[in-house]
Write a protein that binds this DNA or RNA. Structure first.
Lengths: 222, 222
DNA sequence: ACCTGAACACCGTTCAAGT
DNA sequence: ACCTGAACACCGTTCAAGT
C-alpha cells in the first residue's frame, strides 16, 4: 500500500456515512459518534468526511431524517377521515421508529427544521387531522402532543431508570417504591404498556373535544 | 499573586459547583458544559473539580437532582384522594421545572436511578395514585406516561422546531404546512397550549378507566 | 473531486507536587 | 484536605498537499 490521494472510485458516499453513523449510535450511543471514530469505522481518515458533509451536525441531521423516514403515515389516508384510527396508526409507527434508535432522540427533538422526512410526516399528520374536521389550531396542538409523548417515551425507558437492586430503595425514604427494583426486569412490558395506555387515554380524551362529537346527552356543544 | 496549593478556606463547594454548572447549561446548553469551562467560571483550574466530584457525570446527576427537587408534589396530599387534581398539579409543576431548564432534560430522562429528589417525586406520585384507588400496575403506567409527556414537551419546543422563513416550506412538497413558519413567533403559546390540551385529554381519557368510575349508563365495568 | 497527514484549539481525567 | 500544572488520549475542523 502506498499513499492514496484520490481513489479512482470514491471510498465514501453520503449513504454509507449515514448508515455507519446510525449503526454506531445504536450500538454505542450518541457520545460514541466522533468524526474520527466514524471515519475509522469507514476505513478512512477523519477529515475525509468533510468532503461529503460540511459539519458533524449535518451528518446527524441526515441520520435523524432516515429514522423519521421509517414512520408510516398511511393510516391517515387508509382510515378515510377516521382521525382516531389515523392518529393511532401514526403514533404507534412513530414510536416504533424512535424506539428502534433511542440514542438519536435528543437530537431529533430539535424539530424537523428543514429535514424533508420530518416535514413530510408533519404535513401528513397535520393534514390528516384537519381533513378529519379538527380546527387547524387544535390539529397543531394534537401533532405537538403526539410528538411530546412519543419522544418522551423513546428518550429514556421509564423502567430502566430504576436500579435492579432490592436494597436500593429504603422504605423509610420511599415508602411506595418497595417493588421499584423489579421494574427493570419487565422493562419492555412496562414501557410499552405505559405508551399504549397513555395513547388510548389521549385519544379517548381528545374525542370528547372533537367539534363534530355528539355529547352523551345529545345536547349542544359549548 | 503566587502559587496557591491549598487555600485556608476551600474555594469550591458542591453547591457552588452545581449552581454554576446549571447556570452554564441554561445559558449555553449541555454541550457548553466542559469541566475546564466550568472550572474557569468558578475561578479555579480544571482538575480542582475532582476534589468534590469523581466524574463530570456525577456533577450532572447533582444538577439534575436540584432541578427535580423544584417539582411540587403536594397536590396529591392536598387533593385528599382526588387523583385528577393531584395529577394535574404534579404534571404542571413537573413541566414548569423542566421547561425552566430544557437543556438538562436529555440527561434527566435517563431516570431517577439513585437520585434522591427523583425518587422522592416518583414515590409521592405513585403513592398518590395508589391511594386514590388505582391498581399498582396502572399507577406505574400513569406515572410513566406523565414522565413521557412532560419530558417530551420540555425536550424540544415543537414550535421552535420549524424555521421562521415563509419560503422554507414549498407548498408543492408540503401542502399543509403553509402557515408552519408562523409557529416560531407564537412558540410559547403553541407549546403551552399543546401541553395543557394534551394533559386534559390524558386525564379525561384515564377517568374512563378508573376502577371506581360509574359508567355513563350506570352499568358494569368490563 | 476526493483523499491524506499535520496542525489548532479544544475535551475528561490522572497524577505528582505543593501547602 | 484541596489546589496547581503537566501529561495522556481524545475531540471537531481547517488546510495545504497529493492525484
Amino acid at each position: 500500500m502506498w499513499p492514496m490521494a484520490r481513489p479512482r472510485k470514491p471510498l465514501l458516499s453520503r449513504e454509507r456515512i449515514v448508515s455507519t453513523a446510525l449503526a454506531l449510535i445504536d450500538s454505542e450511543g450518541l457520545l460514541a459518534l466522533s468524526t474520527r471514530r466514524l471515519a475509522a469505522e469507514l476505513g478512512v481518515s477523519g477529515p475525509s468526511l468533510y468532503n461529503h458533509f460540511t459539519t458533524k451536525d449535518e451528518i446527524l441531521d441526515a441520520v435523524a431524517d432516515t429514522v423519521i423516514a421509517q414512520v408510516d403515515v398511511s393510516a391517515f389516508a387508509e382510515a378515510g377521515g377516521d382521525w382516531r384510527t389515523g392518529l393511532l396508526g401514526w403514533a404507534r409507527s412513530y414510536r416504533a421508529a424512535l424506539a428502534a434508535h433511542p440514542h438519536i432522540v435528543p437530537f431529533l427533538a430539535q424539530g424537523p427544521g428543514r429535514r424533508p422526512a420530518g416535514l413530510k410526516m408533519a404535513d401528513a399528520a397535520f393534514g390528516g387531522m384537519v381533513e378529519a374536521g379538527w380546527p387547524p389550531a387544535q390539529a397543531t396542538r394534537i401533532c405537538a402532543m403526539v410528538r411530546y409523548f412519543v419522544a418522551g417515551s423513546a428518550l429514556g425507558s421509564f423502567a430502566r431508570g430504576f436500579v435492579d437492586d432490592p436494597g436500593a430503595y429504603d422504605p423509610a425514604d420511599y415508602p411506595h417504591l418497595g417493588q421499584a427494583h423489579l421494574l427493570v426486569e419487565h422493562q419492555r412490558q412496562v414501557d410499552e404498556g405505559a405508551f399504549e395506555t397513555g395513547l388510548r387515554a389521549l385519544v379517548d380524551g381528545l374525542a370528547l373535544q372533537h367539534p363534530e362529537r355528539v355529547p352523551p346527552g345529545g345536547g349542544q356543544q359549548l
